[in-house]
Amino acid sequence: METDAPVRRLTTDLPAGTVTFFFSDIEGSTQLVQRLGPDYRRVLERHGSIVREGLSRYGGIEIGTEGDSFFAVFESAPAAVEATIWVQRALADEPWPEMGAVRVRIGLHTGTAEIGHDNYIGLDVHRGARISAAGHGGQALVSTTTRALASTAADFLDLGDFYLKDLEEPERLYQIAIPGLPMSFPPIRSVGSTRNNLPASTSTLVGRSREMAEISDLLDQHRLVTVSGPGGIGKTRLALEIARQQLPRYAHGVFMVDLAPVEDERLVLPVIGNSIGVTDPSLTGIAGYLGDDPTLLFIDNFEQVIKASADMGTMLQAARGLKILATSQLPLRIAGERLYPLSPLG
């Protein structure tokens, strides 16, 4: 069902150069049709009016609609982000009918505008569409380029790298953090990948195959493994490679928590919350988000905030699907810890 006929524009009307592509659609629209029956048309029209007002307010150009989806472009990445925030807020504030709440997923990608047959073509258009399709109702996802160009327009949560349908390389995805609206969502809809924020590998780890196998075996059997040893011995590089190899085993995600710049133990939970994309950085909030879902936290440089180790014990008790791989010059000394002293390369 369409709100209007698809918009057709002349090639000369379309912005050229670098633009930000906007894609949106209603999550679960088929179920909405079944629940609302004839009332769905009014809901769909109201949804269309809200999206169009958001586009108009911030200079977006509507390219086309199909069913409940929108395709638009912005000449400014910050404007695209601001429009997205406005649309999500307006949709959340709208008094939808009972059992008829509209939840829209939005994806943004900034790239080169290639024009053909009075429309945009090329890989960047497809990338924007795939980013939108990877999200969930109420969620707004952006690519690395959009986030870089719109860094002052909003706060962003780094969700990690994901393989999206038909794209050969993984895509780094960021979620727009909209205060007052939900920020925790199910895992990204990706192809054969695990949600993570692990930095890309820039070199091959050499000479640590035995240690990698032994630590991996410990992780299979225990929920807290601490790789210990003096600074500069290679704990971080080794643990990072192990975390990367563990990706297929943790459906809810593998996350690196870098404590190198943290000296106050009271900041450890907020840093963990930011790393996994949780807005409530309390023990209750983090544990509630993790729940029983298989998750691995790789926590680096714990010796600087060793007093926060008790919180890790509490978190492990509350989130039964959680495992922790830590690096530290000191043991955490909490129940269930398995210590792996790392020796220098011979």
Rank of each mutant, 00 (worst) to 15 (best):
T194G: 01
D166W: 03
L141T: 03
G135H: 06
I121H: 06
G135E: 03
F185H: 02
T194S: 10
T144W: 02
L141D: 10
G122A: 09
L123C: 03
G128C: 13
Y120N: 06
R172H: 14
S151G: 04
L159P: 04
L157K: 09
A150S: 11
D161R: 15
L164P: 00
A133E: 11
G137F: 01
A129L: 09
A153N: 05
Q175R: 15
R130D: 07
F185S: 05
L141E: 12
P182M: 01
V142T: 09
V191E: 12
E168P: 08
I176K: 04
V142S: 11
D158K: 13
R147S: 12
R130K: 11
Y174I: 08
F156G: 09
V191Q: 13
A153E: 01
L149D: 07
Y174T: 06
T145N: 12
D166Q: 14
R130W: 05
S132Y: 07
V191P: 00
L159Q: 02
G160I: 04
I176D: 06
D124S: 12
Y120Q: 06
I121P: 03
H136A: 04
E171M: 15
P179N: 12
D124A: 07
H126G: 00
D155K: 14
F156K: 12
Y174D: 01
L157M: 10
I176F: 01
Y174M: 11
D161N: 11
R189M: 05
L181P: 05
V191G: 01
D155F: 07
P170K: 10
R127F: 08
G138M: 00
G138Q: 03
D155I: 08
Y163R: 11
A148G: 08
E169A: 13
R189L: 15
L173N: 03
T152A: 14
F156I: 11
D155V: 08
V191R: 15
A140T: 03
T144Q: 13
H136N: 06
I176H: 09
P187E: 11
H136L: 01
A129Y: 10
G160F: 00
D155T: 15
D155L: 14
D166P: 00
R189Y: 03
I176N: 08
S132M: 15
Y120F: 10
G122W: 07
T144K: 09
E169Q: 15
Y163W: 13
R189V: 07
D124E: 12
S143P: 00
R172Q: 14
